[in-house]
Every structure is written in structure tokens, then in C-alpha cells.
Nucleic acid binder design. Structure first.
Length: 259
DNA sequence: ATGGTCGCAAGGCGA
């Protein structure tokens, strides 16, 4: 089973690039971020015609997450628990009904810039809420994973120019500390577990020829529960997608799990 | 230090 995460940076702008990648990569499950669309505006027919079930958690203009799945989905929930006043659409969960089911959490973690400031406070508070949700899921001792745009550069080796990010919300010590707390609960960074070499990125800014210079960062991650990690058979980043026509600034990151 | 580029959606915000 192939499960991917892909920040598409606007569904309307990706009506060609996203189906093109789906046809080539044939993922079973995809967590999408930054759909930048309300639920009613999401072109679900396009993906249903390709054999995918579609579950969205959208909002107008910004943010928004969605799940595409070739397998049945059960118990779909929307929103990260822990703050009823939070109106930003950044979290969706569903159980993928494979022979051995896996709970999939799709997330779009806040960017947090500028830091310090209220946006950074929101990012850290959101990460604390995510930790609580992960703890609750871990207590069930079942296979689950959290896949999405974390807006976290975990280590220096995950940036082409780490020194350029030292004061950025994606790389500040408190940010990386909060990410490590998730790992230390028992989650596995699946890509890093399968590939230790530096220089593998999932995002290149549209500005300043970042792609041409390979000035990238790795901020899209799949974190696996122990029961999911036991089934991990592969991981990769589809970096060539960034060179395609009208690309997102992110590329898909994926894993394969034994069914 | 500034602005560099996109997407959404129709002006400026978010990234």
C-alpha cells in the first residue's frame, strides 16, 4: 500500500499537475494540504472518476486539507481536537480499510512566521495539541500515521542552507524540540529511517531560483506509530514533480506499507 | 536591507 503526502498549494491551480502525478505514481492514499478551497469548490468528480474516494476539510482562500483513497475510508473526522475556537482547517483523519486497517491523520501544521509573535505562539500551541492527539492514538496500540506539511525542518541536514533558516519559525530550536517530542513518544520519521543521506528536500521556494539552485528544505513528513512502522517497506520523495509544468512548490513524499 | 514568486480571488494576505 502506497501512502503519500502532497502540499498542492491550491487545488484550482493543480488541476493538471495533480492528476498527472496520480496517474504516474498510483498512490492508494494521498493526504493533500493547502487545497485553498471550500468543500463545495473541490473538484471531487475529477478524482472520483480516477477511482478515489474524496474527503475534504476546506476553508475559503487558505489552508484546507483532504484525503484521497482507493480503499474505503471509515470514521472520518475533521479538525484537531483541543481548541473549539480554532477555525483553521488543518487536520483530517480517517481509517483506511486495508486488509490490516491503518488510521491516517492528514495535517497542515502552521507556518509560524514571523517569530516571535502571535503566529509563532499559535504554531507551538498547535503542536502541543497534536502531541495530545498522538498520545491518545498511541494508547490504542494500533497502526496509524500522521502525514503532511509539518512546516518543520528537523535537522541541519534537511536544508541546503541551514544557516539561512536560523531565525525562521520552521527551524527555531523550540520548533525542532516540539517535533522531537513527537518522535520521542515513539513515532518514526519514515523517510529519515530509510534514507540517512543529507540533501533530500520536499520544498523549494518559487522565489530566487530556489529549484534551479536546489536550495530546498525537507518539511513534509510521514510519522508512523510502532504498529505502522513494523509494516514499513519503502519511502521516497518524488522530486521530479517539481520540474513539471506549473508545479506546486512542494513535491509528494510517500511510503509503502505491507498490507 | 529589500524584494524576489506564487495562489486565491479580486485587494491584500499568506507563504
Amino acid at each position: 500500500m502506497l501512502i503519500a503526502t502532497f502540499n498542492i498549494n491550491g487545488i484550482k491551480a493543480r488541476l493538471e499537475a495533480l492528476p498527472r502525478w496520480l496517474s504516474a505514481a498510483k498512490p492508494d492514499v494521498v493526504c493533500l494540504q493547502e487545497i485553498k478551497s471550500v468543500d463545495e469548490g473541490f473538484p471531487r468528480d475529477l478524482f472520483e472518476d480516477m477511482g478515489y474516494r474524496v474527503e475534504t476539510h476546506g476553508q475559503k482562500g487558505f489552508n484546507g486539507v483532504a484525503l484521497l483513497s482507493r480503499l474505503p475510508l471509515e470514521d472520518v473526522t475533521r479538525g484537531l481536537p483541543g481548541d473549539d475556537s480554532d477555525e483553521q482547517a488543518r487536520w483530517i483523519e480517517a481509517t483506511v480499510m486495508a486488509p490490516r486497517p491503518v488510521r491516517v491523520c492528514g495535517l497542515y501544521l502552521p507556518n509560524g512566521n514571523p517569530a516571535p509573535g502571535p503566529k509563532y505562539d499559535y504554531k507551538l500551541a498547535w503542536m502541543a495539541r497534536m502531541e495530545l492527539r498522538v498520545r491518545a492514538l498511541l494508547a490504542q496500540e494500533e497502526a496509524f500515521l500522521c502525514a503532511g506539511d509539518y512546516n518543520v525542518i528537523p535537522q541541519a541536514q534537511d536544508a541546503a542552507k541551514p544557516q539561512a533558516w536560523e531565525t525562521d519559525a520552521l527551524y527555531l530550536p523550540q520548533t525542532r524540540e516540539a517535533f522531537r517530542r513527537l518522535l520521542h513518544l515513539g513515532l518514526l520519521d519514515a523517510f529519515r529511517a530509510r534514507e540517512q543521506a543529507p540533501g533530500h528536500y520536499s520544498f523549494w521556494d518559487y522565489q530566487a531560483n530556489a529549484w534551479e539552485r536546489n536550495n530546498g528544505i525537507r518539511i513534509d513528513h510521514l510519522l508512523l506509530s510502532p504498529q505502522a512502522a513494523d509494516r514499513l517497506s519503502g519511502a521516497g520523495i518524488d522530486r521530479d514533480v517539481r520540474a513539471g509544468e506549473k508545479p506546486s512548490d512542494h513535491v509528494p513524499v510517500w511510503i509503502t506499507l505491507d498490507d
